[in-house]
């Protein structure tokens, strides 16, 4: 059995005791929510909501926030997923994926990112969100 494996890929059971071999606590845990009356409500999709604001998207090489997925793998809380109001952070096949195009530039991810994965800058002039109401 190899000492490392990509998070999210299932391991073949090669030991009688699951505690044998290296520990791989790199993938942040997602705990199930306690049952709440609120969790049953029919919540609207955030991407549909974001469509209401006007965005001017900059080219990929100029994206204003960068995220280092290797650092994310060491994160004990991945609070960015919970805190980002535009759902820009998400795990895809065990890797953190960040969608800068939907960002409303609030700065929350920078505040909650304690391991230092998020690098935050304002978008270049003329790019990003343009509120019509505000």
């Amino acid at each position: 059995m190899s000492a490392t494996h990509a998070p999210g890929t299932p391991k073949a059971p090669s030991h009688a005791d699951p505690l044998d071999g290296p520990t791989t606590d790199t993938k942040p845990r997602r705990v199930a929510l306690p049952e709440s009356p609120l969790s049953k409500l029919p919540v609207m999709n955030v991407k549909a909501r974001l469509g209401a604001a006007k965005f001017v998207t900059d080219a990929h090489e100029f994206q204003h926030i960068t995220v280092d997925p290797d650092i994310c793998e060491t994160c004990p809380h991945t609070m960015c997923i919970n805190a980002c109001p535009a759902k820009c952070f998400e795990f895809v096949s065990g890797r953190m994926q960040f969608t800068y195009e939907d960002c409303v530039e609030c700065g929350t991810c920078d505040i909650v990112c304690t391991p230092g994965s998020v690098k935050w800058n304002n978008p270049r002039a003329s790019f990003g969100v343009n509120y019509r109401y505000g």
Binding site: L33, N82, A83
Partner: peptide
């Protein structure tokens, strides 16, 4: 913000 910690799949949205 600190109260959003350990909230499973719940988001601010």
């Amino acid at each position: 913000l600190p109260s959003m910690k350990n909230q499973g799949e719940l988001t601010t949205h």
